[in-house]
């Protein structure tokens, strides 16, 4: 395809990933609802886990990519890394919100409340979500690209440094109630083979979704950058052309005036 024919941020790569993802979603639904049995403890509610756990996992992975992109930006000073970091953060926020919502829906029949303050994961995830909403807000502040990238890199790295601190402090904070450890047993011997497989398949599927979104989101960020850089140039050039003709006309007029 020549550049002139490109009309979208899709490409052969995204179309291949997209097709695999679509087939994978069908497979994952069958796996989660038809082929796998209810859990001995959680019953059918375990089926929420097949989307909840991958969402949470992808949120953490996306935020790690953001921090890595920030470090790489500060090292290489290449806008490419900054755009990767920004794209990943936005997708991470989407997955993070999904993890919170699904966790909360799972919690209602399990704990009897949508929000359980003593559950470390859900509280930590909410703080994370807020941290990265702040990160995205910093990116939206109009600024010179490199100025924006520097700020974003610092905020992204602090946010990532905060993940273990938040996690640890919330863990400790919630520890005074002892019932929480028993609420969920995932991994290990508690899940039978097919359930474990559904969980891992979900992780792979969501990782592919993340990859597909990353490619599109990165290209959008790139195009935005191009518009910022060249759109203004084009507008100035256009305006200059206009005003030059104005000046010529004005000069012409003066000349006529002088002639009189």
């Amino acid at each position: 395809m020549s550049p002139a024919e490109v009309t979208s941020t899709g490409s052969r790569g995204t179309r291949v990933i997209g097709s695999i993802v679509l087939a994978g979603i069908v497979f994952h639904v069958l796996l989660s609802f038809v082929w796998s049995d209810p859990d001995a403890d959680q019953g059918d509610l375990v089926r929420i886990m097949y989307v909840h756990v991958p969402s949470a996992w992808l949120a953490y992975m996306a935020f790690t990519v953001t921090a890595f992109g920030g470090v790489m930006y500060l090292w290489k000073r290449s806008l490419w890394w900054d755009l990767v970091a920004g794209a990943s953060a936005e997708i991470g926020v989407v997955f993070c919100a999904l993890a919170l919502v699904t966790g909360s829906i799972w919690g209602r029949p399990t704990w009897g409340t949508y929000w359980e303050w003593t559950d470390v994961r859900i509280v930590t995830t909410l703080v994370l979500l807020l941290l990265y909403i702040g990160y995205l807000a910093v990116r939206r502040i109009p600024a010179d690209p490199h100025q924006r990238s520097r700020r974003a890199a610092v905020v992204g790295i602090i946010a990532a440094l905060n993940i273990p601190i938040v996690r640890f402090s919330v863990d400790w904070w919630a520890d005074r109630t002892l019932h929480q450890k028993a609420t969920i047993k995932l991994g290990g011997t508690e899940l039978d083979g097919l359930m474990l497989f559904a969980l891992f398949f979900g992780l792979i599927l969501f990782t592919l979704i993340y990859a597909w979104m990353m490619i599109h989101r990165f290209r959008i960020a790139w195009l935005d950058e191009q518009i910022d850089r060249h759109g203004l140039d084009a507008a100035i050039a256009e305006r200059l052309a206009e005003s030059t003709s104005d000046v010529t006309r004005a000069v012409g007029l003066t000349k006529t005036g002088a002639d009189l």
Binding site: P3, V6, T7, T9, S11, R12, R219, L223, Q226, I227
Partner: peptide, 26 residues
């Protein structure tokens, strides 16, 4: 949302600045 935004932005950018999108676009 991503696809639509990508489409509209692609059309808003001059073809010579979309070069990274061309064949084997990775």
């Amino acid at each position: 949302h991503l696809v639509l935004r990508g489409r509209s932005l692609t059309n808003a950018v001059e073809p010579e600045h979309r070069r990274w999108l061309d064949s084997g676009a990775e």
